[in-house]
Amino acid sequence: MAWFGQPVLIDELLFQTKHGIVDQSLHARMGAEPTNGDGFGLGWYDDGGEPALYRSEAPAWSDANLRELAAHVTSHAFLVHVRAAIGSPVQQTNCHPFRHGRWLFVHNGYVADFPHLRRDLMLALDPDRFAAVHGSTDTEVLFQLALTHGLEDDPITALERTVGLVEQTARRRGCDCLVQASFGVCDGSTLWAVRYATEGPPRSLFTTAGVETVRRLYPTDHRLARLLPGDRLIVSEPFSDLPGLWHEIPPNTSVSFEHRGELRDQRPFQPIAP
């Protein structure tokens, strides 16, 4: 999940929502795995340039330090990820978000046959980025590939080039070129999100409706009444069952939001082969 908008106490969205991301770590309804207990991560922005990061291999629902942090930290932009390991070890270096400078990166999905593609993809990294890979996940390699392809200048094009490279490498190796890629990228002032799959339906991804629409639909809800224009949530699955509150991001689409949460761009996500 990602929050982008007015400063809020992180606890409000992590623990005080009916079906928030921590509840989803135990009871996901729309994810590939109903339980996501193989670690978690929280990255948030304050007044400094580089975001703060707290990651753990413990389940999100049982980490007392996460509750302590969330109850005392306020932020205008933060990303949270709960993990279900697919083949890679349960360890802190494999937990999202991944960070580079002011950038945060999360990924819901996988690269099929990644162990067979890992060597080729690692060799495609800029040499200066090679040593920055500390874990063993496909996500961290995708992030470093995106940085290699210019993520800091144009995040969506960099991700299109990254996914195009992965698909081309898989085909050359005779592997199933399946990429499941719900990406979240943030630099503190802009938030980018991608929903993509090589074939078939991609993993679910939703954003909240505009504030005026929400207020019109639910004029007596005191929590929703506190929303300001531009406040925005992006989630893998809705936090509540309120009709009209959530808009599904179309398959194979990228969106970007300016601070504070105003939609800047929505366009097709089209991988670019090298």
Score class of each variant (00 low, 15 high):
M1D: 14
L9D: 01
I10T: 02
I10E: 00
D11H: 05
H19P: 05
Q24W: 02
H27N: 15
E33K: 15
L42M: 04
Y45P: 01
D47W: 00
G48M: 00
P51E: 06
A58P: 00
A60I: 06
N65C: 03
T74P: 01
H76I: 00
A77N: 12
V80A: 13
R83S: 12
A85W: 03
S88L: 01
V90C: 09
N94K: 01
N94T: 05
N94G: 09
P97N: 07
P97S: 08
F98L: 08
G101T: 06
L104T: 07
N108Y: 08
V111Q: 13
V111G: 13
V111I: 15
P115K: 10
D126T: 04
V141S: 12
L142Q: 15
I156D: 04
T157K: 12
L165T: 13
A170F: 10
A170L: 08
R173A: 15
C177Y: 13
C177T: 15
Q180S: 11
G184N: 00
V185K: 04
C186Q: 02
A197S: 09
T208D: 04
A209P: 04
V211M: 02
L217R: 14
L217A: 13
P219D: 12
L224S: 14
P229I: 00
G230W: 07
I234P: 02
E237I: 14
P238G: 09
S240E: 05
P243T: 12
G244A: 05
W246T: 13
W246F: 13
R267K: 09
P268T: 10
I272S: 11
